[in-house]
């Protein structure tokens, strides 16, 4: 697959309250690929995602390029890890999907076109049955599917996911990746996911950026996920990974796997 850079990070730094959270971050996010940002807790993964989204001040430059290599402002979508809200609130999935699609307050009715669009977006993720359920009653995986449905409806060129399928049931995680992979191929979507789950990364990401306040290594997944690199990044945790045969690079190829490997790091 020939690829070109979609996002170029040059010398990116973030300092908050005098503490350097990120410094000298350099790297590229390739168009049409799945780039995973991995690293230990406190490595600044989510901070880097926020910087790419433009939500916090940073030094250095983050350039977005179109397929001809010219500067552009791509359509972004973002799937947060979860929602931060009052779990007892009666807001339903349909309400949530209507809130950013119509100005007319939902208490004066939801447009039938908005409703249909919501049903289609959810059906794509096998979540149409969630339409009238309150958000507060959904599981973590169900909320992520709703958030992905909302993000995909924006027809993004660049989709950023914060810890997808973390704390998600196995079936939900599979479905999530299947659909993402289908849509990525269909629309040549560029995906960036922050993840600490190496099994997800080895299975679904084509490229990896290792972050520990700065980039420690980056490249194609099998080149990066070597025992030496992992030892450097995670220390003792890499022991789990060493016994695994060659990492599977083909994304969402889990039909050939036992389903239980999806959640825990593979033991080989």
């Amino acid at each position: 697959m020939s690829s070109s850079a979609a996002v170029v990070l040059e010398n990116v730094g973030v300092t908050r309250n005098g503490i350097k959270i990120l410094y000298d971050v350099r790297g590229t996010i390739e168009r049409g690929e799945v780039t995973a940002i991995i690293g230990p807790n406190g490595a600044g993964k989510t901070t880097l995602l926020s910087a790419i989204l433009g939500h916090l001040p940073f030094t250095g430059t983050i350039r977005f390029l179109d397929s001809a290599g010219m500067p552009s402002t791509p359509k972004l979508a973002y799937v947060p890890q979860s929602l931060d809200f009052d779990r007892g609130s009666p807001i339903t999935v349909l309400d949530f999907l209507a809130l950013d699609r119509q100005k007319l307050p939902t208490w004066l009715g939801i447009n039938s076109s908005v409703r249909e669009e919501a049903v289609i977006a959810l059906a794509r993720l096998e979540a149409a049955h969630l339409l009238d359920r309150p958000l507060g009653r959904l599981s973590g995986g169900e909320i992520q599917r709703v958030l992905l449905a909302s993000a995909l409806r924006r027809n993004p060129e660049l989709l950023l996911l914060d810890e997808p399928v973390s704390g998600v049931d196995v079936a939900g995680g599979h479905l999530f990746c299947d659909v993402l992979e289908e849509i990525r191929q269909e629309r040549r979507l560029t995906l960036v996911m922050v993840s600490h789950d190496l099994s997800v990364v080895s299975e679904h990401a084509t490229r990896v950026i290792c972050l520990n306040r700065t980039v420690t290594c980056q490249g194609e997944t099998p080149e990066v996920l070597t025992p030496e690199n992992l030892f450097q990044i995670y220390g003792l945790h890499s022991g789990l990974y060493e016994h695994h045969p060659a990492p599977t690079v083909q994304p969402c190829d889990h039909h050939h796997h036992g389903s239980q490997d999806d959640k825990n790091p593979p033991h080989g």
């Binding site: 809200f85 950013d100 939902t106």
Partner: peptide, 22 residues
């Protein structure tokens, strides 16, 4: 104000950074 902004305020209450992206 509520007729024009209620939906977006409610969306904002669910996840502020997401609202910004939207």
């Amino acid at each position: 104000f509520l007729l024009v902004w209620y939906n977006r305020l409610l969306f904002m209450s669910l996840h502020t950074p997401l609202a910004r992206v939207h």
